[in-house]
Amino acid sequence: MARLENLFKAQSKRVLNVYCTAGYPDLNSTLQIMESLQENGANIIELGMPYSDPLADGEVIQRSSLHALSNGMTLQVLFEQLQEMRKTIHIPVVLMGYMNPILQFGFEAFCARAKEVGVDGLILPDLPLYEFENIYGKTIKDNGLDFIFLVTPETPEERLRKLDSLSSGFLYAVSSSATTGKDKDFTQVAIYLERLQQMNLKNPILVGFGIKDKQSFDAVNEFTNGAIIGSAYINALSKGEDVGVITKEFLNEVLGN
């Protein structure tokens, strides 16, 4: 898929990727939220596939996931919701989730369906490098999907270069070793991001974990191509007001519009 590649060709700074949980707050709000994100300035949509045991996520995203599951969200339902998405959604869409539900769906069937509905890439935090290289990576690439690895401040340089070489679309830089939704000390983050910047990696870098408002978005943009916002947006959605209004207010604040 060329959407991610084309996006970063056209825009190398302040790329905003916003995470939302499929089926949250309502089972059928998925597409409405995606349209609203696109309309209000998000550049990429990271759509979370809810899982009962999301290890890499903090409590905000876990709560939204459990809520979405109790709304009746499944991968089957999600792909039905996304069947027509490319009629209205023109920005890149990446699916984020955990391996277990995908294995139950069937990994090959999952990749084929993702491709069919127009998904651009995958973020699967618990798919390890070894298993990616030996089993699953080929299926992902054969379906033309980008795969985005996570890197952290603790990832050794050699491994980081390898994860970069196997990723496409962008590289997801976790701002510190933490689950999502935690506050961060940005001076430490800045040192790390500067180091990443100097490594001349193949992929654009988006920073995630701890980005929640204009100030933190501006801060990381000094060193990278943009950022990913998740928990802060889910928190905003959890207030239960009209998702269109919330999304507009939220993105206007982050983007300084």
Partner: peptide, 11 residues
């Protein structure tokens, strides 16, 4: 078996 863990636990 294996180690299906997020990168944050890798080290």
């Amino acid at each position: 078996g294996g180690a299906y863990i997020p990168e944050m636990l890798f080290k």
